[in-house]
Design a protein around this nucleic acid. Structure first.
Ligand code: MN
Ligand code: MN
Ligand code: ZN
Ligand code: ZN
Lengths: 144, 144
DNA sequence: GGCGCAAATGCTACTATGTTGCAAAACCAC
DNA sequence: GTGGTTTTGCAACATAGTAGCATTTGCGCC
């Protein structure tokens, strides 16, 4: 198609990590960037299909893994047995998450720092703290 | 066997939740109570087998689910795709966890309260906060 | 102690999610 | 454009968990 487009922010992110620009990679990253919540492999696959982007299940798994390994995206293990993926719109992934226990939605709470006052028992080396708040999202909380 | 034993703390816990005393349930709960870390379904099954307690895979899943639903045990989704189970030795499950990113071990940090200073965006109803600290456990951190 | 019935178990089959190996295709530095 | 490397697609496999249903077991009651 058109060969003279400016690189999208998705494309820049990909090349910045030393990855090649491919249709699936760009589309997945754009989907994640546009999402207001973390998405499962399945949801992303569906979104791709809706955009008419043909893809293989395994390729999508590998694409997502690559995004996580590259530090572009983050992965969260949910209570249902599906991992959810998201990208922090800006900067590294240093924020808390909200998990709606009713609909299962997970949203990033950017600008919400754990402020964890921990004194670990001796010997433990702390790398990072992961904070997940549980409750009801605005949509689900309505009928409470 | 002997019919005049005093109820173990495991048995008390089970009856307190309105459950029936069964071999598997008691054994599983005792395993969890004795463990110094969260255990996977598989690890618990292995422990049962070592004790010569015959059981079915599905029964163990249901036993663990029941313990969680009853509020006796807690369940954590790990990065590997296995859930880990544990019981707080005393009181409800209101503490942080430490996850060793090298060996995958998860330990309960009882007496370590999140102290989360959060102001959620409007509409979100907070039920509970889940704090997981990531890093290296004493064993794995040695060679660092 | 024994009965009756609900709760729990064991089996089998099935689903969902993720992984591996390898050949074909697509990128991109040159 | 070409060549070598990365990425993809496909098929087969692995793992963790679930569902239905007949059988067994715990236990309140007599
Ligand atoms: Mn996030
Ligand atoms: Mn715990
Ligand atoms: Zn919700
Ligand atoms: Zn460790």
């Amino acid at each position: 198609m058109s060969t003279h487009t400016h690189p999208s922010s998705a494309e820049s992110l990909i090349t910045a990590q030393g990855g090649r620009i491919t249709r699936t990679r760009v589309a997945v990253l754009e989907i994640l960037l546009a999402a207001d919540q973390s998405l499962t492999h399945d949801e992303i696959g569906l979104a791709l299909a809706e955009q008419g982007i043909k893809h293989d299940r395994v390729t999508l798994y590998r694409t997502l893994d690559w995004l996580v390994e590259s530090g572009v995206a983050h992965k969260m293990a949910g209570d249902d047995r599906a991992r959810r993926f998201g990208v922090a719109a800006s900067g590294p992934h240093e924020h808390a998450h909200f998990h709606c226990d009713r609909c299962g939605k997970v949203v990033c709470l950017e600008g919400l720092q754990p402020a964890v006052a921990v004194n670990l028992p001796g010997g433990y080396q702390l790398d990072r703290a992961e904070l997940v708040l549980h409750g009801a999202c605005p949509t689900c909380g309505k009928g409470a």
